[in-house]
Computed example of a mutant assay.
Amino acid sequence: MVNISPPADDRRIPALTSLTIRETDVVRLVGHGMSNAEIGGRLTISAGTVKTHLNRAMDQARRV
């Protein structure tokens, strides 16, 4: 099982500090190699909603 909690030492990536909790969860799970469908199943949201969260996260990262 993939841990989606923040790192224990609370290191933060500046581009991620303005993300919602759900967006952060999705980005972490992508980082662990999970597909949109797997993430959706894990978080009980649709794959389309996963894509929406990823797009919002990428938009914010581009602004940094």
Rank of each mutant, 00 (worst) to 15 (best):
R42K: 12
R63N: 13
G41F: 00
M58F: 12
P14A: 01
K51G: 11
R62L: 15
G41D: 02
V27W: 02
E23N: 00
S46H: 07
H53V: 01
V2T: 03
G40T: 00
T20L: 05
V27P: 01
G48I: 10
T20G: 14
A15S: 11
V27T: 03
E23S: 02
V26A: 05
A8Q: 08
V30N: 04
N55C: 04
K51D: 11
V27C: 05
H53C: 09
N55H: 13
R11P: 00
R62N: 13
D9P: 00
S18T: 12
A37H: 11
G48V: 13
G48H: 13
V26Y: 04
G33D: 03
E38H: 07
A61W: 03
R42E: 06
R63H: 07
A8N: 13
G33S: 09
D10H: 10
M34L: 15
T17M: 14
V50S: 00
V30C: 08
V30I: 08
N36R: 10
N55L: 09
R63P: 06
P6I: 03
P7F: 07
L19R: 01
T44E: 09
A57T: 01
R11V: 08
L54Q: 07
D10G: 00
R12A: 03
R63D: 14
L16D: 04
P7N: 11
V30H: 12
D9E: 07
A57I: 01
V2I: 09
S18L: 04
N3I: 09
A61M: 05
Q60T: 14
G40H: 02
L54C: 01
E38T: 10
A57R: 05
I45L: 13
T49D: 03
A8C: 05
I4M: 05
A37R: 15
R22D: 04
T44Y: 12
I13C: 01
K51Q: 14
R62W: 07
V27S: 01
L43W: 05
S18A: 15
M1S: 12
R42C: 08
R12T: 04
V27H: 05
D9K: 08
E23W: 01
N36D: 15
R12W: 09
I39W: 03
